Computed example of a mutant assay.
Amino acid sequence: MDSNIHSQIEHLINNEYNKHPFTAGIDKANVEGVLAEYLGLCLCAPYIIGGSSNELFLNCVFSGRPIDRKIEITTAVAAFLSFDETGNYNKVIAGGHEALLSLLDTSDFHSNMLRRDLKLLFGKDISPTHNSYLKYYFVQLSKGLSNIDDVQRCAALVALEVHSEIMILSLWDSVMQVFPEIERNKLEYFYLHVGGDNPAEKYHVAMTEQMINEVVGQDNLVTFFTHFKFYYEMNTKLCRDILDNNAFKT
């Protein structure tokens, strides 16, 4: 993204969210509970992100707002993120048109990759947990991603992207401390998201840059960062809630 915007986001996170909640507080006693709740969170991605455009469309129809370019831009980004979470983006990139024949194979949904990682860690299938605060988070996230206000909607989307990378890396590091006997790169969900060299990363950054420039613009950056902080805090609070709920198990 624009170097100035990028540096402002990094500065904000480093100053106000120096350590992600998942960097500490995870041990042998509570790791299964934490990861069961994290799986519950992971499951939502293709549905909440992809479905947010449905509510946005209805908001526009009932308010009489035209579907303009700014709405199309955030819809395109959300559709890509949802498609990626199903594992089908990588299939199409690797296999071209022929990969369309394998789209019904859902084993590469990112949540299913995480299920396999958890089975490797615990030697058994782990069921997802959806506590009340996680359900509330789903509702709030959906409202943000479908908000008719362009700046707020863009901020919710960027905060989700930025936080996800930090969250996954922090959780991966903590899990490895609990399971040092497991080879780090054997955990396919974590490796896919934040491991190794990602040749698509520079394009992902450029896409986010263009979205902020076109949807927000320089004149609305102050408002953008106000909303960004709100949604970033919402994401980190969920992680603190997950840890707090499992604290008694330590």
Score class of each variant (00 low, 15 high):
I242C: 00
N235F: 04
N185G: 09
G196W: 04
R240K: 09
H227F: 10
Y191K: 13
D241S: 06
N147A: 12
D173Q: 15
M176R: 13
E181D: 08
K202V: 08
V175P: 02
L171F: 01
E161Q: 15
F225P: 04
L169Y: 11
L171H: 03
R153D: 03
L221R: 06
S146Y: 03
T226Y: 12
Y231Q: 02
G195H: 03
E201I: 09
L160P: 08
D241V: 09
V158R: 00
N147L: 10
A159W: 01
M211W: 01
E165T: 15
G217D: 00
M234P: 04
H193A: 08
D241H: 11
T236I: 04
H163I: 08
E183A: 10
V215D: 06
V158Q: 00
F190V: 02
I182G: 04
K202W: 12
K229S: 13
T236C: 01
I182Q: 04
L192C: 12
Y203I: 07
V175A: 01
G196D: 09
E201A: 15
W172A: 03
V158K: 00
H193C: 07
S146F: 04
F179T: 07
I242L: 03
T223F: 14
C239F: 13
Y203C: 10
H227A: 07
V222P: 13
F179S: 07
Q177G: 14
E214T: 10
S170G: 07
T223G: 15
F224C: 00
N198E: 08
V216L: 01
D149I: 06
L238N: 07
G195T: 00
M167E: 10
S170Y: 06
N198K: 14
F228N: 00
D173A: 15
S174D: 02
V215E: 02
N185T: 13
L238D: 07
Q210N: 15
A200Y: 09
Q152C: 11
N213K: 14
V162R: 03
F190Q: 01
S164Y: 15
D150H: 09
L221G: 01
N147F: 09
E188Q: 12
E165K: 14
V151M: 01
D197W: 15
P180W: 03
T208G: 06
Q177L: 14
G195Q: 00
L169R: 13
K237A: 10
D149E: 08
P180G: 01
E209P: 10
V178P: 03
V158C: 03
L160S: 10
P199T: 06
C239Q: 08
E188D: 13
Y191N: 14
M167W: 07
Q218F: 13
D149C: 09
N185C: 11
F225I: 04
M234C: 08
E209F: 10
H193S: 07
M167Y: 03
L238H: 09
L160M: 13
A200F: 10
D149M: 05
V162K: 05
E165R: 14
Q152H: 12
I242R: 00
E181R: 10
A206K: 08
E209N: 11
Q218G: 12
V194P: 09
K202D: 06
M234Q: 08
K237C: 07
I182K: 03
E165C: 13
I212M: 01
Y189N: 05
Y232S: 03
K237I: 05
M176Q: 11
D197Y: 15
A200L: 09
E183R: 11
S146P: 04
Q177K: 15
L187W: 05
L169H: 10
L238P: 06
